[in-house]
Design a protein around this nucleic acid. Structure first.
Lengths: 155, 155
DNA sequence: TCAAATTAAGTTGTGTGCAATATAAATGTC
DNA sequence: GACATTTATATTGCACACAACTTAATTTGA
């Protein structure tokens, strides 16, 4: 009876289960917008950067979302197929693909603005508590990522 | 600049990123055992139930891990192929498949017992803080799942 | 008792994640 | 200026997740 191995004592399982549970709450709301959850995250980044007039490369999305091209390339192709974004090779550096919003993609933001409230209302956890949880998660994320840099001192 | 839509203000993104970050820390440790992360979770449940002499059905794993047969069936086939488990249709109810550990599967527990410590040491977050985070995550998970039952009162 | 409903697991198809590798363009170096 | 190195993205292959559907066995109930 190794207590350390008990499923309920694994922080990783709590994260795993909570993440999937939250995602499953988003799914029907995002389906109304015709988006999957990772596609929604990509759109959030694009909306954010567009309103700051920042052009966005595939690698910018990767850095922000911690995703590589193996995930992003097909996802972006689907968003392009849906008419929400443009993918364009940059003239002065043909290695780079620039992602920009179409009018439809930019317009979708208004509908998306409803999503966070819709999700929170009906969830029996106070906003303060969620805020605290978010801060804790970010701290753990930071600690893990700091460790990764530490272990690859390939400078 | 809709603050509600800012990526950094999305609890869901913190969960998503932290979950993948933690999982990526597990990956090399579990690779030594020849397990993926979801396979590890299944083994945790099997070890736990075996030490309590509880037989385990596919649906027991599904309930505990919140996974359906579409995920579990192929995963369990891979574990069986690896020689860690047996899959057997129950005699008295042929709809049910019982999962049991092979000797090798049971023996793997000793190696797995090293995993949690290995993961925690090197992570610059205090155990107390992780414990608090786990409790918070479980509370949110419970709130979400309570809501699901509430919305499907199909009794 | 026997057809309808329910239950348990399996199958199929789509969309991630991620490792490994490939391709092509730019950069650095001699 | 030719060649090795680096950089940015794309491709391939595998393993989840999950919705939708199928199959087969059991239970229910008129």
């Amino acid at each position: 009876m190794n207590e350390l191995l008990a499923l309920d004592n694994q922080i990783c399982f709590s994260l795993y289960a909570a993440n999937r549970a939250i995602t499953s709450r988003y799914r029907p709301l995002l389906a109304e917008l015709g988006l999957t959850y990772p596609q929604y995250l990509v759109m959030l980044v694009l909306w954010e950067r567009a309103s700051a007039n920042q052009p966005t490369r595939v690698s910018d999305l990767g850095t922000r979302l911690r995703l590589d091209s193996g995930t992003l390339t097909p996802l972006l192709k689907r968003l392009a197929l849906r008419g929400l974004i443009h993918r364009e090779r940059r003239q002065d550096d043909e290695r780079v693909v620039t992602i920009s919003l179409t009018d439809e993609g930019a317009g979708l933001r208004e509908q998306a603005a409803q999503v966070p409230q819709k999700l929170l209302c009906g969830l029996d956890v106070s906003p303060e508590r969620l805020l605290a949880l978010r801060h804790e998660l970010n701290a753990v994320l930071k600690a893990i990522e700091a460790q990764e840099v530490e272990e690859e001192p390939s400078g």
